[in-house]
């Protein structure tokens, strides 16, 4: 196939527990039986991005708090 990713596709979340979590949700949807491997990788990237976003916001809040204490 065509190579579309130029960097190694490393996942942040350990795949086995993540897959277990997805399977647990999937059990509520009887018609869906399979998970594409790309799904788990994308889910890991998205959750990592979400965590990064939260941490960035926390960092800004902490910075403001420190400024307030200094002044």
């Amino acid at each position: 196939g065509t190579q579309i990713r130029s960097v190694k596709n490393e996942v942040f979340f350990p795949p086995t527990p993540l897959q277990g979590k997805v399977r647990k949700v999937l059990s509520r949807y009887p018609g869906i039986e399979e998970i594409s491997p790309d799904f788990i990788t994308l889910l890991s990237h998205a959750a990592q991005e979400r965590l990064k976003n939260i941490l960035e916001r926390l960092s800004v809040v902490t910075e403001h708090k420190m400024e307030f204490i200094k002044n």
């Binding site: 869906i32 399979e34 594409s36 790309d38 799904f39």
Partner: peptide, 10 residues
């Protein structure tokens, strides 16, 4: 579909 694909999540 009976397959959960990346495009659904995307």
């Amino acid at each position: 579909s009976n397959i959960l694909e990346a495009k659904d999540l995307l």
